[in-house]
């Protein structure tokens, strides 16, 4: 928390400017914001359609099950799918790349 506690030898600005960090944070951000945006649009379609497009939700598709129920259930599938996709990519890729940076951090000195 306090700046005085920071171990000597890490040059934060240099690490931040390191091309590996720049590439990592750019790719990570792009990936995160895309998923976040998709989730928000997909979720808000539900209250918007229950408010303004009830006729579509009332269409029966499978016995008494209507589009509205399927749409609500699909939100669960989407939420889980996003969690799994993100966790897989983060575990396989982002973790390894940030670990490599952390290992090398003491040697990154010059701001490029």
């Amino acid at each position: 928390m306090q700046k005085s506690n920071i171990p000597l030898g890490i040059h934060w600005e240099a690490v931040e400017a390191d091309p590996r960090f720049q590439a990592l944070h750019r790719e990570k951000n792009k990936f995160l914001w895309r998923m976040m945006l998709f989730t928000l649009i997909f979720y808000f379609l539900l209250p918007i359609s229950t408010a303004y497009f009830q006729d579509i939700l009332k269409v029966k598709t499978w016995g008494v099950i209507n589009v509205g129920l399927l749409f609500a259930l699909s939100q669960f599938i989407v939420a889980w799918a996003i969690a799994v996709i993100y966790a897989k990519r983060a575990n396989a890729e982002f973790d390894a790349r940030s670990k490599a940076l952390v290992k090398d951090a003491h040697n990154i000195r010059t701001v490029i």
Binding site: L32, M35, M36, T39, Y43, L46, P47, T50, G68, L69, A72, Q75, F76, A79, I82, A83, Y86
Partner: peptide
């Protein structure tokens, strides 16, 4: 009925923001 279930969906979707950012 259906409207009660709408709450469940909102409560769960909140976790996407928690997870991602």
């Amino acid at each position: 009925g259906y409207d009660g279930f709408m709450y469940s969906v909102g409560f769960l979707m909140g976790y996407i923001a928690v997870l991602l950012v």
